[in-house]
Amino acid sequence: MSSETTTQQGWRRILHHDELVMGTVVTFDLYDDAEASSGLESMLLDAIRVLHEADRVFSTYQADSPISRLRRGEIDLDQCPAPVRDVLELCERARDITHGWFDPWSLAGGVDPTGYVKGWAAQRSLDVLRRSGVRGALVNAAGDTASFGGPLPGAPFRIGIVDPQQTQALACVVESPGAVATSGTYERGGHLIDPHTGRPASRAASATVTGPDLGLADALATALAVGGREVLPLVEGLDGFEGLLIDFDGDFEMTTGLRVAPAPKTIR
């Protein structure tokens, strides 16, 4: 079945865009029954701008970004732009929810909300597109997705989950309730740090969290990957969020509300 190019059911992908930002690639896919209009084009530019603005404020690689200056103690929180305070508040909430398994304050070099910002920014970028009236939109921030609507009327977006043992393959497929975030040590060679020990650690090969918001989903996925199965009940207890763990043997463990479809056979 060809999803994106099928026209008989009414919608099709009308726009695809790759944006290099935040040190990675963020893709936009918009679905509708109408052609992309110039109004939509300017809306997309606004959505992209949200990402670059987040990068400007939160990049720890740019020495003069507000977050870098905060980390060095050159400015305090009150002197930071409002989004810094907002994000740190959200990070604090995520830290409480995960019982400290997600903790941007535990890292060396001062508070580092990077693990929250990418998802948060992608979610805000998506929210700009929501105002455009387009029927379906999917923002994929290097493997963490935020979406509304779907590729066809009544059909949610289906997101393949990378197989942590064989990253050119998919382990399974989930339906997006709005956000799908995956964290795993395969991503960047063990960048996950156990906040309780300050050392690289991971109790799962891969962790996926679905839910209504990509900022929190991203933080939860990180917590789940670092903390492993003991974090799963914390995700279970959150309204609208579901979690999936893939262990180092390739076995799945998931919350009760998550529906997982098998990976397509065509993928090795």
Binding site: T27, G143, R158, I159, T167, A263, P264
Partner: peptide, 21 residues
């Protein structure tokens, strides 16, 4: 593989590592 999957399995995205598209 993502590209193949997107078509043949009716999926629209992949969650996990992807850096160089």
């Amino acid at each position: 593989q993502q590209a193949l999957a997107a078509q043949s399995a009716n999926i629209q995205g992949v969650s996990g590592a992807s850096y160089t598209t």
